[in-house]
Design a protein around this nucleic acid. Structure first.
Lengths: 198, 198
DNA sequence: TCGATCGTTTACCATTTGGTAAGTGCCCAC
DNA sequence: GTGGGCACTTACCAAATGGTAAACGATCGA
């Protein structure tokens, strides 16, 4: 089973980068956690930047593929919104690091943020387009798709990454809480999107 | 004008910690930015940890006082919710670092998060209590105050701190966008809280 | 059996980092 | 004018960090 270390390093780095940040994660520390030397990591990834890049691309693809498959198996309209939200929360529960990384990228600055945005951009564009066309068709209430999108994003990632804040209000992100938060978000989206008679 | 450096250092550190993170901010870099030596900073704050503590306590007090005064001048019920949200968005626009720091604390781990939570806890508790009593009085729809609170928090901080994501959807956090986001959040809260006939 | 490649370790190295110690200029009370 | 405290700098330092170079052992094809 070759390059098992590579996989483990990638996973550990993903979690560590998301939780403590790239700057606060040292190769030595990461290596110690894996029971290898720092050079074992540098062998698979040319440099720390190389590791960051690998982590970011892997995470972006992972995240996008999960959302994409949810989109693919759903019909346009409200159903698709629900499916996407469900997929997002599934990711939030099973692999919160992916959403944490999304946030970490903001502070890494230009080259990295641009890289990740390249991957996300098509997804965002498509979501905006679909909301707009839904509004044009009268399937959704008229409104501002971008604001709705940003709000939904902020809610999901915020809840996942600010575990401390969740604890402050006496919650913890387990399945039950996630389900209730999902319901909260969906009712918000329903209020914002679904056309009501009158 | 004594200790002007101290104030400037505190401000610069607040912004830097929020934007790039504590670990990614070096005392040397901070000092260079201020045009002094690292030791000038260490003179006013015993250590980097000392600086972090000073930044955190100042930020927490600042943030809380802004929200508190909004609460004080408003009447209980929906009016108070609106006033609080307005105050939160005002902070988000004028001093986004304060919200960014809130998020940074999550990754600093125990001692720091506990410290900040001590300051925030009373505010959170009061908000929950007020929502609950509002529900009991029939002023608000029955629901889960904690979920509403967390959602609102996540939305505001998420929008402020993930500037990159905002850019991805083609927005930028200026006053106009902030106002529209505020309206979005308020309509969500209204849907969640305000009792409707039937 | 030999040699080569792969994954890894040992041995270093330069730079950066947080921090200490010892000054230095300056204002002000006396 | 002088002694003392205040705000700061210069001069260091030990530890940690990202990275390079070379050696080592195992697996495997010829």
């Amino acid at each position: 089973m070759p390059t098992e270390t590579k996989h483990r390093a990638l996973d550990a780095a993903t979690v560590a980068f998301a939780a403590r940040g790239v700057a606060a994660t040292s190769l030595d520390g990461l290596a110690a956690e894996l029971g290898v030397t720092k050079q074992a990591i540098l062998y698979h990834f040319r440099s720390k930047d190389g590791l960051v890049e690998a982590v970011l691309t892997a995470a972006a693809e992972d995240l996008m593929s999960q959302l994409q498959s949810a989109i693919d198996i759903s019909a346009p309209g409200w159903d698709r919104v629900v499916a996407t939200v469900r997929a997002a929360f599934a990711v939030a529960v099973r692999r919160p690091e992916l959403l944490g990384l999304l946030r970490e990228v903001s502070r890494l600055g230009r080259p990295w943020s641009a890289m990740l945005l390249d991957v996300l951009q098509p997804f965002v564009d498509r979501a905006v387009a679909e909301l707009e066309s839904g509004m044009a068709l009268g399937r959704f209430r008229a409104g501002e798709p971008r604001l709705v999108l940003v709000s939904a994003y902020a809610l999901v990632t915020g809840v996942v990454t600010d575990a401390e804040v969740l604890r402050a209000v006496g919650l913890e992100l387990d399945l039950r809480v996630a389900v209730r938060l999902r319901r909260t978000l969906l009712s918000f989206l329903e209020a914002a999107l679904v056309a009501r008679p009158g």
